[in-house]
Simulated scan of single mutants.
Amino acid sequence: MSLLLALLIAAAPQRELKVCADPNNLPFSNKAGEGFENKLVDIIAKDLDAKVTYVWWAQRRGNVRETLNAGLCDLIPGVGPTLEMLGTTRPYYRSTYVSVVRAGRGLDIASFDDPRLKTSRIGVQLVGDDGANSPPAHALARRGITGNVRGYMIYGDYGAPAPQEEIVRAVADGEVDVAFVWGPVAGYFAQRQKVPLTLTPVTPAFDGPQLPMLFDVSAGIRKADRSLKREVEEILLRRAPEIRALLLSYGLPVPTP
């Protein structure tokens, strides 16, 4: 290699990977880089030999249009693979809603048809400021179980360091007997409570044809950026064992591949 070529290579700017992520959304991401999506981004960036630059944006309705599709970033982790406004990658994990109860109380509940739900205090996640309901909330309402149900906003108190923890903490504190929670949130925060909690995947995976409890999760890339999508998908496939180990370390209930 000539000296000139070596100098040109040394002077070449490092590749930059701009990532849109929520600054306060554990276990997924935060500004301190403590979320599993932060760690996933690190894996991708290392493989690309790229420097990560974050564009911090609260994960709210319209955030994809206002960030990725507005050209502010190149990638958003943690999106549904069927999101039509994006060029989504192959899923890098699948998880499910779970029931969360205090361990040792004999209240392990897997089905929305469990008769004990009629007399239990139940917590469910509500999605968005408009009070839209999560799949478990719809499943309970279909069975007429509403009077003993308490809703917890997914976004919670955004001024708190872990806004999504509230519903899991409510089980640990005895505010509710059972809560139906998205698996990654339940698994991560259950490990951090003062009492042991038991997580049970809800069954069946589909409560009727239009109400899934099991979801795939992908990374989002602009539709036109086919080259980056191809690169990221190759990394997700090549580093799959490492990524699975990462997810399990955060307590995510992920099915065995």
Rank of each mutant, 00 (worst) to 15 (best):
G183M: 04
Y152H: 05
F112I: 00
S2W: 00
L107I: 14
P204V: 06
V101P: 02
P161W: 03
V127N: 10
Y54M: 04
W56T: 06
G174S: 09
A224K: 12
Q210A: 14
T53R: 09
I167C: 08
G106M: 08
L126R: 14
G80K: 10
K18R: 15
V254T: 15
D177M: 00
G78N: 07
N148H: 11
V217C: 03
K31Y: 03
V124N: 11
V127P: 01
A21F: 05
E234H: 05
R94P: 04
V98P: 01
P91S: 13
A12N: 02
V232M: 07
A186T: 07
P161M: 12
L7M: 06
A162G: 02
T146Q: 11
E231S: 15
E242N: 12
V149W: 07
R90C: 03
N63Y: 15
A179S: 08
F189W: 00
L246G: 11
G156R: 03
L214N: 08
R192G: 08
V52S: 04
P136E: 13
S99W: 10
P204G: 01
E175K: 14
D173K: 10
T203V: 09
P241C: 11
G208S: 00
R94M: 10
L237N: 05
S134A: 11
I122K: 00
G151C: 03
F28K: 03
D173M: 09
G220Q: 03
A179F: 00
A21V: 03
R143A: 03
P212R: 02
Y155H: 15
C20W: 04
P204C: 04
A10V: 07
P241S: 13
P253V: 12
A137C: 13
P13L: 11
A45C: 09
V41C: 09
V79Y: 00
K118R: 15
P255M: 13
L126K: 13
V232P: 02
A224I: 12
F206D: 05
L236I: 02
M1W: 01
T198L: 02
